[in-house]
Design a protein around this nucleic acid. Sequence first.
RNA 1: CAGGCAAAUCAGUCUAUCGCUUUUUUAAAGAGGAAAGUCCGGGCAGUAUAGAGCGUCGUACUUCCUAACGGGAAGGUCUCGAGAAAGGAAUUUUUCGGGAACAGAAAGUGCCGCAGAAAGGAAAACUACCUGAGCGCUUGCGCAAGGGAAAAGGUGAAAAGGUGAGGUAAGAGCUCACCGCUUUGGCAGUGAUGUCAAAGGCAAGGUAAACCUUACGAACUGAAAGACCAAAUAUACCGAGGAUUGCAGCAAUGCAUAAAGGGCUGCUCGUCCAAUCUCGGAGGGUAGGUUGAUGGAUUCCAAGCGUGAGUUUGGAACAAGAUAAAUGAUAGACAACUGCGUUGAAUUUUUCAACAAAGGAUACAGAACCCGGCUUAUGAUUUGCCUUUUUU
Length: 131
Amino acid sequence: MNKEFALGKAYKLCSIKRIDRLFAEGQRLKAYPLTLMYQETHDEMEHTFQVLFSVPKKRMKHAHDRNYVKRCLREILRLNKAPLEKHLTDCHKKINFALIYQFNERMSYAELEQKLIKALDKLIIELTHEE
RNA sequence: CAGGCAAAUCAGUCUAUCGCUUUUUUAAAGAGGAAAGUCCGGGCAGUAUAGAGCGUCGUACUUCCUAACGGGAAGGUCUCGAGAAAGGAAUUUUUCGGGAACAGAAAGUGCCGCAGAAAGGAAAACUACCUGAGCGCUUGCGCAAGGGAAAAGGUGAAAAGGUGAGGUAAGAGCUCACCGCUUUGGCAGUGAUGUCAAAGGCAAGGUAAACCUUACGAACUGAAAGACCAAAUAUACCGAGGAUUGCAGCAAUGCAUAAAGGGCUGCUCGUCCAAUCUCGGAGGGUAGGUUGAUGGAUUCCAAGCGUGAGUUUGGAACAAGAUAAAUGAUAGACAACUGCGUUGAAUUUUUCAACAAAGGAUACAGAACCCGGCUUAUGAUUUGCCUUUUUU
């Protein structure tokens, strides 16, 4: 089976300690309506990055709306993660990052796709700059 | 045609591509009627607990159902609206549809604005009514202290039983009939209550969603509860083994080292204790993981019992288990439904049947230990009842 587009459990950032550290020490990258928190790491991981999706309850009151946005984000990342993965493999880097949705209403899949791809491009540029 | 109430059913299906979670991994399964609000009640778990009382909180017509409830079923009472019947009237009976925080006001305390003469002590005399000491004179009229009187007027949510008659100076349950009320007793009912009879001239108005009284119930916490496994690191503890020195000083001692002190002895050796190092064990326990946690007051079907909520017996089924939290995204098709139109029949407003362009799933909403309820949100269809409007 072609695993090119898979985004399984190993990609998920689950450890509470790592999440705490990410939010305490990580760097912030704004790409409205999304915010990325990212941090280079040396933890043992199967893949080049681990990610978590967050939609604040403050902004989206209903659970079904939050679920919808998270699903869309996950789906888009799944389909568009290739460039990021390639870059990280080339540089021999590993990162943890969080995707935070900072908008008060639901967006369509197409809109979100556009925004997220932009954000990922920005992230790659930032990572290059750091070197 | 529109609106309201009640009940029932459903909450899209299929295909392709790329994915997610779980498990017994060539495969199978994967959100709701409210998963929601977290408002009640239980299970489950931990902690506490001799018994009793006070306090606090909750509940409040009756009986029943239930694991339990503040939930439900059946019944009762009162009350509101509409209608009908009896009667001269007061009033009573009855039908249909709603509503009730529906225990106690004769244990005690508090409160009852404005209006009104008087609003709780069985109160109160403004107008009008009756009587009239006395005064004035035109001698049968006027004024009038005081007294009688709750019948009429007026005020109020409410004026102290009602209607009719007798009675009286005028009046009054003062007396009588009927109605209502209260008390007592009989009968019916498991009971709330109902009904019949007798007695009482009728007495202590409302407010308990004011304090309060009475009866019944409640120990507290909450799945982040609780139980278990357990790396790394450090280690009070246990066992085995190693090492126990160097420098300064007469010595005490000081310095160094991971550590090198004390008992037995005059001293050395030895041995014991302590300290220290290495290895092993053990314990608690962090990261992390397992469990709790999905087979149950379960669901469906049938039969019996019960007015009913329910319940008993038999048979069948296993139906999400995630944990920064899965159950999705994209594209297409189908279908419920709406139906521009076309054809046929009855007919010539229209009705019924068939075909059908086009539109076409859109509402409320996402399990977080599990159940029973309640409440709220909400799309569509069907059935029943009620109301309004228009047309014939």
